[in-house]
Amino acid sequence: MEAGGLVPAPARPIIVRPRRQSSASWPLIDRIGYWLCWATGIALCLIALAIVVFMFVKGIAYLRPALFVKSPAPSLQQSQSGGFLDPIVGTLIITAIGTVIAAPAGVALAVWISEYGRPVSLARAVESAIDVIAGVPSVVLAIFGLLVFSESFLGFLSQNAVNGSVYGRSFFAAGIVMAILALPLIVGSTREALAQVPDRVREASYALGKSRASTIRWVLLPSIRPQIASGIALGMGRIVGDTAIITILLGVTLTTEGVGSVPLIGTLRGTGSTLTSYVYNNSPAGEGNAPQKAYAAAFVLLMVVLALNALVTRLTGGRERGGRLSALRRALASRRPEWTR
């Protein structure tokens, strides 16, 4: 409004702010409740801070560049037991398998429930099924997965003994079960985003003679891309951090052990470890008992998960104030419709 210089701004503007309400006049019980809320909030901040600071201090102290490029080795000597190259690769493989399966399946499920949802009874059933899966502890999923993947008809997904029995533990097995773990998160955020798109946008597309399918493909999905991405990032965070499925379904060998001679497929049918299982094994509770390595790996794990969380926050615009927008956010935001901003 400066340009025209029509009306000069007041020299000493009186800024009106709402007066802070004093809690002194409140009933005692309200005041106690209020302070309890405060106390809990501060306690939570302290805990979060303690975790990050503790892991940071411990982690940095033991973190060496060599740890990222050396495979773990069986040795009681700390200097001989190698690094966590294989666990990092394992985490990447598991996350990739889980995401590649869960992302399209989750988006498709969410679109079907929100945009079609017929027959209604089936849609309700699918909704409840997703809720059930979201609530199942991952260790239960893992045990169930072991049962399934030990079936002989799924033998091609893992190692087979000479007598024909199926091992049932492999990157494939763990990755597929991880996909189930991540699915509810992706379905949830996609559905929520679809519900936010006003019906008038759909109608505008129908009014141009577009089918429901092309409306979804060319109007709805592009406009909720940030929320889909954040759902996927949430799911990845869940996969990266899960331990139970890894311990039960990945076999937890120290290094990545392929099966057969086909290069990539062989690795995926074989066993290995991830950062979570590495931390567990090297903690005082595990067999390796190399707490320093465990701290370093835990620090890396924490950073990965925090980075994924930050990505989610960025993508959904949860923290608008301050901070430069990442290139990704900007790229997505340029395509974001007003109702998601």
């Binding site: 008038r200 946008v201 109608e203 505008a204 141009l208 109007v219 406009s223 419709p337």
Partner: peptide
């Protein structure tokens, strides 16, 4: 496609 419609609220696609 033959009978097209414009609504009260402008609703361009994103």
């Amino acid at each position: 496609r033959r009978v097209s419609m414009v609504f009260q609220q402008p609703n361009p696609f994103p």
